[in-house]
Amino acid sequence: MIYNGEAFYIDQLKSSDALHLNKLLVSNTQRLKRFLPKTIAANRTLEDSKSYIEFKMDCMNAKSEFVFTVKDKPTKNVAGLIILKNLDWEEKQGEFAYCIGEKFKGRGWMKQAIKAASNFATNDLGLKTLQIIAHQSNKSSVNVAKKSGFKWKKTLKDVFIPEDESPLDMELYELTI
C-alpha cells in the first residue's frame, strides 16, 4: 500500500481488482474514452480486465510501468487509477495518467493520490522528474496537476489523437525533485 488516508487508499493493481476495475471503466466509458482510449479498450469485458491486470502486473515486475488503484475505504471498490508510464530510468523520469469514477470526482482524492504516487515515484523508485500531460479542456486533470505541485512547462503540438478527431495540442506539467 502506498497511501492510506481517511476516505481512500492506494495500492498496486492486483488480480483481485478485476471485477471492480471493469465496473469502474465500463460505467465511466463515455467520460474517459477521449483521453484514456487504450485503457478503456483493454477493459471492455471482465475477461479483458483480467488480461489487462495480468499484463500490467508483468510490467510492474519489469519496472516498465506501474498501475495503482485508488480505492474507496468503506467499500474497497476501485474508485480510480493512477498509471506511472513512459519511464526513462536513465533520465529518472516518468509520466502519470489517471482517472477517477464520476461518483468520486470533486472530493480532492486525485490530488492527494497524485501527491502520494509522486512520493512513491521519487522515494521508492528514485525518479527525479514527473510529468502530467493534459488537454486544456480537461479542467479536472489540469487542476489535479497544478494542485499537486506540477508546473506548466510547455504546449506539445499535435501529440495526441483521440478517436475520430484531429490531433490535439497537450499541456506538459512537470514536478522536478
Rank of each mutant, 00 (worst) to 15 (best):
Q93A: 07
K73Q: 03
N61C: 06
I133F: 06
L87A: 08
Q12V: 15
A113N: 07
I100M: 00
Q136D: 11
M60F: 02
V144F: 01
A117T: 06
L127H: 11
E102R: 10
L81P: 02
P162H: 04
S16P: 01
I83P: 00
K73C: 06
F66S: 01
E102Y: 12
G101Y: 05
I133G: 05
A113K: 02
F55N: 10
V144T: 01
E171Q: 13
K157F: 09
P74F: 15
T39N: 14
V67A: 00
E91Q: 13
V159Y: 01
E6T: 08
Q136N: 07
C59I: 01
W152Q: 09
G149S: 08
R34Y: 02
I2Q: 00
L127T: 10
N143M: 14
T75R: 06
P167L: 11
I161M: 08
N123Y: 06
F104C: 15
A145H: 04
K157Y: 07
K92W: 08
H20D: 11
A7S: 14
L172N: 08
E6V: 09
K50F: 01
A42D: 15
L24N: 01
F35A: 00
A145I: 04
K111C: 15
K56R: 13
F150T: 00
D88G: 06
D58K: 07
A121G: 09
S27L: 11
L24T: 01
P167Y: 09
K63M: 09
S51Y: 04
G108S: 10
F68D: 00
A145V: 06
T69R: 05
L19P: 00
T122W: 00
K147S: 14
R44I: 03
A117H: 02
F68L: 03
I10K: 00
Q112R: 07
S16V: 14
L25Y: 10
F150N: 00
W109I: 05
G108F: 12
Q30T: 15
Y173V: 05
I82F: 02
N28C: 08
N4H: 12
D164Y: 12
K115S: 07
G94M: 03
D158T: 12
S137W: 10
L127D: 09
M60W: 02
K157S: 09
A145D: 02
Y173M: 13
S15E: 13
G5S: 11
S16D: 10
I100L: 05
L25P: 14
M1Q: 10
D158A: 14
N123Q: 10
E165D: 13
L46T: 03
V78C: 03
Q112L: 13
S148E: 04
F8H: 03
P37Q: 04
Y52R: 06
G101K: 02
N123M: 06
L13M: 11
M57A: 08
L87G: 07
D124L: 04
P162L: 04
K111T: 14
E54V: 03
V159K: 02
S15Q: 12
I161L: 13
I100S: 00
Q30D: 15
S137V: 11
N28G: 03
G101R: 05
G126H: 02
A97N: 10
A121D: 08
